[in-house]
Amino acid sequence: MKTSEILKSMCKVLFPFVSMFGLYVIINGHISPGGGFQGGAILATAILITYIIELDIVENLTLLIRIEKYAFLTIILIGGISLFTRGEFFTNFIPIGSSIVYKRIFLIALNFFIGIKVATGLITIISTFIEEGE
């Protein structure tokens, strides 16, 4: 597939902004609209832009699958900590009477791991489809 020079140059300008916006949406998921799922989809779009620039796909799918597996296990573990601190599964592990600032640690951490998981999953799907199409 041939891509035009104008499209390549515009994508080179656009790539850092898209990836920065994805990270912003993930980290600020508890303040502004957005969150882990949406930010991960934006990050996967940034990787799709690199395909237009270089015509090179991500080859190492095994590493991506491994990262996604470990991110999913980390999400379950962070959710399970609340069994010891609050006595019930899958809720905030900071005690219920503490300050709002400490409760936000849980939200930021979980948004971050969900973002990594969704981004790696969508990158794997995109790379597989591009590889099949060639």
Binding site: H30, I31, P33, G35, I100, K103, F106, L107, N111
Partner: peptide
């Protein structure tokens, strides 16, 4: 929950 965004408060 300490979240300004109520959607995040529900799903997390």
């Amino acid at each position: 929950t300490g979240s300004n965004n109520l959607v995040t408060a529900i799903y997390l």
